[in-house]
């Protein structure tokens, strides 16, 4: 389904992209992502397709706002039945709850449900509306970190099972990682679209790299002609050898993967190595790393040897990727 919307107030925003499967629109806070969802749902004056000109009650969308917006005066099945008509509303509502694994909690009020359970009730309610498009606003924001991945996996499985295109807006790179399709928004414009693997492999800009949650996206400037170029890194007070096709004086965002950063003792370091000190060591279930301080800049790297606090880091030329700003 193609989404093509233009909003004039409260901010100017236009967006045009394809929604297929579980599509995630990734952007920082304040980009107008929620406004876009509200516009598609008909809750904000805007022009665009689909559903142009229809009042919200006539748009076939299932809208799940942040916080889920369950009706507090109704229990779980009544919330789902709100989207249904006819004498068999209750049976149908319970069937929808069964589908999201919550039939046993049908009589509970929203306040008696966990964040994940509330989200599933909201999803059942949205699906019961038989929408042509599901709209999810920051679906991971209200979830407990311990159960977030499981809840997310269930949510996406349900969306796939329903066979309805879903558009989730988020600033959470973890959500982007599980999307079928990624749409990236920066400065209220769509700046890149593609499958997550494609986008991760080739971010279109430093802003996209930041949105994707990449660490070590820094600001710098290219000095010199191709072949003998160096990258000025003002925050660290250093310059690094680089190999790009960019012209002298180009302001750039640049990136190096933490695992590509090489730690050296002061004695073994080459001339291009940058002085660094260990600011924090990170040891977790999903990987290890260290936050290094290089001048005013923070650089993420693999864990240095135990006990090492001061040293030098080398940033291999082949691992540095530059985007003109």
């Amino acid at each position: 389904m193609r989404v093509d919307y233009r909003i004039e107030r409260p901010v100017m925003l236009s967006a045009s992209f394809e929604v297929g499967g579980f599509t995630v629109l990734l952007g920082t806070s304040g980009e107008g992502k929620t406004l876009l969802l509200r516009a598609i749902a008909g809750l904000l004056p805007a022009r665009g397709e689909p559903f142009d000109g229809l009042p919200p009650q006539r748009r076939a969308v299932g809208y799940l706002p942040q916080g889920h917006a369950l009706f507090p005066h109704l229990n779980a099945w009544q919330n789902v039945a709100f989207a249904l008509r006819g004498p068999r509303r209750r049976d149908e509502a319970v069937a929808w709850l069964e589908r999201v694994g919550l039939a046993t909690l049908a009589e509970r009020r929203p306040a008696q449900l966990s964040g994940g359970q509330q989200q599933r009730v909201a999803l059942a309610r949205a699906l019961a509306r038989k929408p042509q498009l599901l709209l999810l606003d920051e679906p991971t924001s209200a979830l407990d970190p311990a159960t977030r991945d499981d809840v997310l996996a269930e949510l996406i499985a349900e969306v796939h099972a329903a066979g309805i295109p879903a558009l989730a807006v988020s600033h959470d790179p973890a959500l982007a990682a599980v999307a079928d399709r990624l749409v990236l928004m920066h400065d209220r414009r769509i700046v890149q679209v593609g499958a997550p693997a494609e986008v991760h492999a080739r971010p279109a800009s430093g802003a996209v790299a930041r949105l994707l949650g990449l660490r070590n996206v820094q600001r710098g400037r290219i000095v010199g002609a191709p072949g003998t170029q160096r990258l000025l890194w003002p925050e660290a007070g250093a310059s690094l050898p680089v190999d790009t096709a960019l012209v002298d004086g180009t302001e750039v965002d640049w990136h190096i993967a933490p695992e590509a950063v090489e730690w050296h003792d002061a004695a073994t370091a080459t001339a291009d190595a940058v002085a660094a000190s260990v600011e924090l060591r990170q040891v977790g279930a999903h990987g290890h790393g260290a936050g290094l301080r290089c001048g005013q800049a923070r650089l993420w790297a693999a864990l240095p040897p135990e006990g090492a606090m001061h040293g030098r880091v080398r940033l291999p030329t082949s691992s540095i990727r530059c985007w003109p700003v």
């Binding site: 749902a41 008909g42 009042p55 809208y63 706002p65 916080g67 917006a69 009706f71 709100f82």
Partner: peptide
């Protein structure tokens, strides 16, 4: 009454009058 709840009721296919009687008034 949170306005968002009234708006959600609209997106679930109810007319503004029905939303008033089923959401705004009870809440």
């Amino acid at each position: 009454v949170p306005r968002e709840l009234e708006q959600i009721a609209l997106t679930l296919g109810h007319s503004p009058a029905r939303c008033f009687f089923r959401v705004s008034l009870p809440l």
